[in-house]
Design a protein around this nucleic acid. Structure first.
Lengths: 348, 348
DNA sequence: CTGTTAGCGCCTTCAC
DNA sequence: GTGAAGGCGCTAACAG
């Protein structure tokens, strides 16, 4: 025979006072006499009273939950980002619902739908690689569910977002390489359909131009980021008469694939060809010949800021469809040293 | 001037029928005439009616949300596990709340508390490395919130859990090494305080015994899993007169640290000393000299099964404190080939 | 200072 | 086949 879960009603009955008094007493409302207040609070403690959140969610029309949809937690970029989000959410007593789109548009849409149904107060989203249609984002707007993008941003007006400007990082990267005597610098880029590739490409061109280095179209290759495609790209580059002496890759994974291929084809890594990439994965610290440097994109900070913007929107719902907040972090080139930065460990 | 969000009340008013009729019509209740049913459903569609989940949560006293607390999403083990959880949850229309304890007991407790407050229907948890006190788990039991552990299990009776039996994997590993002629096989283990270390140690001893190899205490070293501690362990091992020719490490990260140290000290990896580890990180595929093999612990499956058990408990709440469900997967040795298994890519 | 009351959206007896 | 009414737990407007 278990006692029913205590409610304010229960407390009220036991104390022969009204529920509203109990409610106010529990909230330390000033209009409640000290005597009753303490009586209520003591009984509440004694009964292990805890407000029923579902009732409060209902009443307030809020769930104190934000939804986060991102491509893939297995990428350290995103697991860092979610830490940034989580840490912010914690300070605001918000909880975090996650969903992985696995870079699939359909899955992304389903997740958006599921989270809308669950009535999250707002959402953070990093767009899946193959998402072309943005109707689910418009839908959220119609429902006035604030949405803040981070890292992977749709080509779309009037959105809130946090992203990392790659120009600076790319410019640093080129500068770094040129200073080391490189003039033949290739770029293994991602698919042309995604914004991130465009940005890299433009930054690459700009940076070379500023160094007065002529752009060679054969040095610029788009891939779908798969290992095979990267290998093909490398094959092309290695076959060139004027072989590049340095290669900048879309991200560290691509760099790994590229380097693996190069090595198998007799290239001495970072001597014959130097590599620089984007993202700065922790595993680079374990490699014998990691890319010489990576452009850091601050995932933790992006997540954290995105959550901050969302928080701001939740606070001022009117803003949601008015002023669009954009936050742009500056990327930065990180020269790799070989000392291992230990990734957080233990898996038991 | 925006219309209010449509409710069944609204629909009822417009159709001049009662809310209960609307409610039943929307649920396809048999006692509702076809005419009214379709009228209701059409209007509902037209108004874009959607039931207010928070109201339903409230009414049903459920949130259709499960909480997942794990040490660290940055470990690929856990990001796989969460995929397993997410995939299961999706089939049951459950959502997943996540929290990272960062292997800290206090954080873990706070997360448990926060999720309890949020009224998750149940929780999945992988215990933080330094958690000694289990009062938060008992607390959940008192609140009758079902809890299923996975991977990292507390030393505690009467719990539901999914774990991976390391015996098989360890036995395979030893067999693998012995077959290659090794007799001097060391173990760099984790901290003695955690169960996972104990399991490994016992399995190691058993497996050696079965091979009739005498156990040398100097071959067994406990570390706190940090890089420095691993390096120290390696130093000790390398200093032995009878140097080990093979080393089994607690996990891949430890293996990486150990190998890095060994290499710097002139050891030719996997020739002078062969390495075998636990976990099978994807990055191993990119290494020039990865551990020869890893004991796979099936994180996706563990997460998936744990979610399944939780689902079962949610369905039969009486079970929660009665039959304790334990699911034990068999670990398996995976011989590394060098072909890259591409980790899911893109970060833009 | 405290109590009364209404109502959030939905579901579910119970009654017609 | 349909409607009326009550209630889930909590808050807040209004009334003393």
């Amino acid at each position: 025979m278990k006692r029913p879960v205590p409610t304010i009603k229960e407390i009220a009955k036991r104390l022969n006072i009204s529920v509203s008094t109990v409610s106010r007493a529990l909230h330390n409302h000033h209009s409640i006499g000290l005597r009753t207040k303490t009586r209520v609070q003591e009984l509440a403690k004694e009964l292990n009273y805890e407000p029923n959140q579902t009732a409060i969610f209902f009443k307030q029309g809020k769930t104190f939950t934000i939804g986060v949809i991102l491509p893939n937690l297995s990428e350290s970029f995103f697991s860092s980002a979610i830490s940034g989000i989580e840490d912010f959410a914690k300070t605001k007593k918000y909880n975090v619902l996650v969903g992985q789109s696995h870079d699939d548009e359909q899955t992304e849409k389903q997740l958006v739908e599921a989270m809308k149904t669950h009535r999250v107060d707002g959402m953070l989203l990093s767009v899946a690689k193959n998402t072309r249609d943005y109707s689910h984002f418009d839908m959220l707007r119609k429902y006035e569910i604030p949405l803040v993008f981070f890292d992977s941003i749709p080509k779309k007006q009037d959105i809130h977002y946090v992203a990392c400007n790659l120009e600076n990082g790319m410019s640093n990267a080129i500068h770094f390489l040129v200073k080391r005597g490189h003039r033949n610098i290739a770029l293994i880029n991602g698919p042309q359909t995604i914004i991130a590739s465009k940005e890299r490409l433009e930054a690459y061109k700009d940076a070379l131009a500023r160094k007065r280095i002529k752009i060679d179209a054969r040095y610029i290759i788009s891939t779908d980021l798969s290992a095979v495609d990267t290998h093909k790209a490398m094959e092309e580059l290695l076959a060139l008469k004027r072989r590049p002496t340095a290669i900048i890759t879309f991200n560290d994974y691509v760099a790994l694939d590229a380097m693996q291929f190069a090595k198998r084809n007799g290239v001495v890594l970072n001597e014959d060809i130097s590599f620089v990439s984007f993202a700065n994965l922790p595993i680079c610290h374990y490699m014998e010949n990691p890319p010489l440097a990576s452009v850091e994109q601050f995932p933790y900070e992006q997540g954290n800021k995105a959550a901050g913007i969302l928080w701001d929107l939740l606070d001022n719902p009117d803003k949601t469809n008015q002023e669009y907040q954009k936050e742009i972090l500056e990327s930065k080139l990180v020269i790799h040293n070989r000392e291992p930065q230990h990734p957080s460990i233990l898996q038991a």
